[in-house]
Design a protein around this nucleic acid. Sequence first.
DNA 1: ACCACCATGTAACAGGTTACATGATTAA
DNA 2: TTAATCATGTAACCTGTTACATGGTGGT
Lengths: 173, 173
Amino acid sequence: MLTATEAAVLGLLADGERSGYDLRRCIEGSVGYFWAPARSQIYAVLPRLVSLGLARRRHVRQETRPDKQLYRITAAGRAALADWLDRPVEPEPGHSVLLLKLFFGDYGDPEAMLEHVRGRRREAEQLKVELLAIEARTTKTEQDRYPALTRRYGLEYAEALIRWAKWAEAQLR
Amino acid sequence: MLTATEAAVLGLLADGERSGYDLRRCIEGSVGYFWAPARSQIYAVLPRLVSLGLARRRHVRQETRPDKQLYRITAAGRAALADWLDRPVEPEPGHSVLLLKLFFGDYGDPEAMLEHVRGRRREAEQLKVELLAIEARTTKTEQDRYPALTRRYGLEYAEALIRWAKWAEAQLR
DNA sequence: ACCACCATGTAACAGGTTACATGATTAA
DNA sequence: TTAATCATGTAACCTGTTACATGGTGGT
């Protein structure tokens, strides 16, 4: 079975031939909000997909730029992606360093705890701005149906976090 | 600097002497909601804390039960914990397999995508019930101030998720 | 002159997981 | 008699990160 990162890369390749470098830029501003592998990880995954027969590599010589490797998804790749997508999603055990620190807040500095909450709120406010900006410049096509779901999730998350943070700040003040 | 798991364990030890086994049970139903190391990980962390001088081990012989190791936090341990708690929280890059699958939903089965959303909603509804139950049986003491913050976060999260899921289900139907 | 962009990859390390291994006691 | 609870640990593996390594082009 695929790992999530392999599936993410296949998913991006499903839209067209791309290099590792291209993928990076595709990721930020879209999937990057909820799945952001390190650069080196992308370059590690691509050859693996090739050796599994899920993608094909094509060497492209360039003169003014360094040469590059373009990857294209295969029929087997599309099948593997579809299979992965349809499998049940495991419940994701939430990891949150913020909550961990707050939970033990009594052993720390009250001022620091307050600042942790404020920081997270600022991040959420920033996220909200970015998502609204993306929303504004996105044309609502048929292909946008699913990505729209994820943006909406982000918005709902950001707003819930802001509400919580305001309440928490009041409690801690 | 401590890892989050080391800090979590120290945090629990700060409340009193405990065995690895005890810690496991402390974790589920409290920190476990946002930080749940594997059992083997707890047993790996404890000796490390001892060798760092942050905890002390005490062997307790038992007759009707297997022997056990009790761990107690040291003064250095409390200092290390406080230091870790007060450090700024890094922005946590969100990982969500659910959103990843949804984002590429076009390449999968629509029925499966709908089921993914429904599944996550059920989990959130369950979480909400659990958190309300904990809330109900908790006496609002001074020590509860910080943990209360994390429960409230969970509630806000669960409710936001349920709202989103209902909306998403309508979109996909 | 300097910085950002294009472009790929390796190596070392970190932080975790699952499975293996053991075995008595007690409640249903 | 079957299963859960008590109780600890090791070993193999996985997935990912950061740091190292290289070097031309084009804009300010």
